[in-house]
Design a protein around this nucleic acid. Structure first.
Lengths: 197, 197
DNA sequence: CGGCTATTTCAGAAATTCCTGAAACAACCG
DNA sequence: CGGTTGTTTCAGGAATTTCTGAAATAGCCG
């Protein structure tokens, strides 16, 4: 593996991370390499940099294409495939989120909804179904939120994230405006904060 | 494996999901089983339900304890360990997020910050470091947001999520209030959102 | 077509991860 | 203490995943 130490360490780390994130080590390393590279790379350059076999690199690239995480491009007068990652990191993150949702969340939701439909036969089943319903609701809440924010352009998304929980204060404020259209609101809190469901 | 079909299907699915989420299939299945169960279970009940070896179950439970995802409790006059999951699903999600942050995000941030410090030697290094800096910023933005919202109580968090991108409209609205000081005084805005560097 | 370059496939080897049974350990009790 | 019950450890075998080299495929050009 002939790669400057900086890139090398990055690549090794994201290989491990990739393994925790549903792609194998090789694929993670290939992606990390492409991500750091200024120009697109062809398969043989990846082989030279990482020391995997040619076929392993080929399979890794195919996997990355199936995740839609790499761009394929051709140079003029060159038949080789060159690969690169999007320049915009947000685009990468959005793609990842999209893919994982499609591969993991959506099938999970189908199953949960199906299980929730079945007629409970025993007391244990009844309890399990209640638990399942609860789970479904939470996932729906989270994916609903996700479906909303993914439509935001990057600039607004960044602002929203930067605001963090402070947004809560804005909401409390507008709540007060809404609830007391007359004068200055005297009530401090619109609702009691700490009820545990 | 003696388990009603409903529970069985749920358990199998979350075994697979567990595998994608950093714990192995066994551990995922054990957790799914505990999650659906009305009362705490002891190791032998898990063995009976899932058909793993006693030692495998023991290791799985140990792993779950290391993630702080299960509660251990004792019944009076019984020496066996009984395990259960928190009743509150939000608590489970919070714990998961906390653990994954500690295990994956924090070490990644350390590495990235360290790499960003190094003196760039080549042009390729300079570009790689720019990419690394960009990555660091995004992770910091996301974890900053997370650190904020995890402090919210469940009720407020649910409201915030349910609002989704609609929150953007509220923000736009208050922005306008701020910009047009003629009418109602916008009173106390929360501190100005972080300026992006 | 035939030679050339580039890529993909795939069966089996290599490596890793997972699981088990046996043994060690620990706590309790009479 | 010795018996009983329950848990943990761990070496090695089983299963799964990953990786490789050889062969197949595909496109291009003269």
């Amino acid at each position: 593996m002939k790669l400057p130490p900086l890139q090398h360490r990055f690549v090794l780390h994201f290989g491990e991370m990739g393994a925790r994130w549903g792609v194998n080590r090789t694929v993670g390393q290939i992606y990390a390499l492409l991500y750091l590279s200024e120009e697109p790379l062809c398969a043989d350059q990846i082989v030279a940099a990482l020391g995997f076999s040619r076929s392993n690199v080929s399979m890794g690239l195919k996997e990355l294409q199936s995740w839609q995480l790499v761009r394929l491009q051709h140079l003029p007068d060159d038949r080789r495939d060159f690969f690169s990652t999007p320049d915009d990191l947000w685009e990468i993150v959005r793609t990842l989120a999209e893919q994982r949702k499609a591969r993991e969340i959506d099938p999970t939701l189908s199953l949960l909804r199906e299980l929730a439909m079945e007629e409970p036969t025993t007391e244990a089943n009844r309890h399990a179904q209640a638990r399942i319903a609860e789970t479904t609701e939470m996932i729906e809440l989270l994916t609903g939120w996700y479906d909303d924010v993914r439509k935001l352009d990057t600039e607004r998304l960044e602002k929203l994230l930067a605001l963090g929980a402070a947004v809560q204060r804005v909401l409390d404020f507008t709540d007060r405006l809404k609830l007391l259209p007359g004068g200055k609101p005297a009530a401090k809190q619109p609702e009691t904060p700490n009820e545990k469901a």
